[in-house]
């Protein structure tokens, strides 16, 4: 069936199978490979995108469910060539190593900061508890998100 999804401000209209996953739509149809796949069970959060502003795991959303919606992926975080504060803070505070979980972590972080620009350590940890990182031990991710909040406020 035909769907139209606005991804990072650009409209993507495609004919898709009803079973097509949103993550495959984003990666294969829209060609935005910054969104990653790390598991098959909605456990790891590598595929996290913002669907109408809210974090979702795009491996657990059908592409047809996103028809008419706005999706933001990591490629849409920077605006006008300016890094989002979360992106800059991840680099500054060594919040990433292999980089595979990073897009999902940054999107969740940015969504958290939208509603809570000064989150506590616990609030950040709870917010990102649906996202797995195997490299960093999370400490620097938490620091980076908090620092980005400080930047924005």
């Amino acid at each position: 069936m035909q769907i139209t999804v606005n991804i990072n401000g650009a409209s993507e209209t495609r004919d898709v199978e009803p079973r097509r996953l949103l993550v495959d739509f984003i990666r294969s149809d829209a060609g935005l490979t910054g969104t990653h796949i790390g598991c098959d069970t909605s456990s790891c959060g590598a595929c996290t995108v913002l669907l109408d502003g809210r974090p979702v795991k795009s491996c657990t959303v059908l592409a047809v469910q996103a028809d008419g919606s706005e999706v933001k992926t990591v490629e849409g975080l920077a605006e006008g060539g300016e890094l989002h504060p979360v992106q800059a803070a991840f680099k500054e505070h060594h919040g990433l190593q292999c980089g595979f979980c990073t897009p999902g972590m940054m999107l969740v972080g940015s969504a958290l900061l939208e509603g809570n620009p000064d989150p506590t350590d616990e609030e950040v940890r709870w917010a990102i508890s649906g996202n797995i990182c195997r490299c960093t031990g999370y400490m620097n991710i938490v620091t980076a998100i908090q620092a980005a909040g400080g930047e924005g406020s």
Binding site: T33, G34, T35, E75, L77, G99
Partner: peptide
């Protein structure tokens, strides 16, 4: 010093295997 490789990772511009078509 801050990592040189991070510039691509924070922009979603890494080149992981499944990104190759």
């Amino acid at each position: 010093v801050r990592r040189k490789e991070d510039d691509r990772f924070i922009r979603g511009a890494g080149n992981y295997l499944d990104d190759l078509n």
